[in-house]
């Protein structure tokens, strides 16, 4: 994964805007917990080979949770609203958004990717490629490549499919390799790799600081 620090920075950047009037320190702690939660599957990797980046790193959770949440929050006597009020509804929606966009999508584009449709199908996907328009080649994108075998005429689609939980091990400082660790193994925890990851950390920090420095607007003052 890009480090949790990078995930958290993007999550905070999104939360600052999406939380709106419910933005406060406690809400940020909730967002941080949402970002950390899926990494629990790292520890599952000790018992269940390939669990990291599959068990809790998929889009199936979002696909199930979003309609349920929409159904509950739009009906008249919403369980969530009655129990936790408008603040609870907002927090859960922002949490789901942050989980999906700041965590899942970024891991999808990183290393071996994530197990998108786990547990329905067991296949890691990695989002990688580029898109450009060039005067020589026209519009080109390499994220999803459809190729036709010239001999058999069979079409194949390459959307970055990788292995399955059986043969993919996404290493982490907790579980560096699929084999039992020897003594003195180097456990490496990257905080940021390459300029863009550090940039996203700076971006997250910037939005938090800027939000704090912003003078309250007349409309916000009325709430006090």
């Amino acid at each position: 994964m890009p480090s949790t620090v990078v995930h958290a920075a993007v999550a905070f950047c999104l939360a600052v805007g999406l939380l709106g009037e419910f933005y406060d320190r406690r809400a940020l702690v909730f967002v941080l917990a949402v970002v950390l939660a899926p990494e629990i599957d790292t520890f599952a990797g000790w018992f269940l080979d390939g669990a990291h980046r599959a068990l809790l790193h998929n889009l199936v959770f979002t696909a199930v949770a979003a309609p349920v949440l929409l159904w509950d929050t739009t009906r008249e006597s919403s369980w969530l609203r009655e129990r936790f009020g408008a603040r609870g509804v907002r927090l859960v929606w922002v949490g789901l958004f942050v989980h999906t966009f700041a965590h899942m999508l970024f891991d999808w584009s990183h290393l071996d990717g994530i197990n998108l449709f786990y547990p329905i199908t067991d296949r890691f996907f990695n989002l990688d490629g580029e898109a450009f328009f060039s005067t020589a080649e026209g519009f080109t994108q390499t994220f999803i490549e459809v190729t036709t075998d010239p001999e058999t005429g069979q079409q194949s689609v390459d959307a970055g499919q990788g292995g399955t939980t059986g043969n993919t091990h996404v290493s982490s400082p907790v579980d560096p390799s699929p084999d039992p660790e020897p003594d003195g193994v180097d456990r490496r925890a990257p905080i940021a790799v390459q300029g863009w990851q550090l940039y996203l950390i700076v971006l997250g920090a910037f939005t938090l600081v800027a939000k704090k420095l912003q003078s309250p607007l007349p409309s916000e003052r009325d709430d006090d």
Binding site: W108, D128, A131
Partner: peptide, 29 residues
């Protein structure tokens, strides 16, 4: 050869997707 680049890598596509989702999400919320 003129080359107008849209996204260079996976993470850049992700940033574009997040921005495209965040703006309407903010309005809805």
């Amino acid at each position: 050869v003129r080359r107008l680049r849209f996204v260079d890598s996976g993470w850049q596509l992700v940033v574009v997707i997040i921005a495209a989702a965040a703006a309407p999400a903010k309005r809805l919320l």
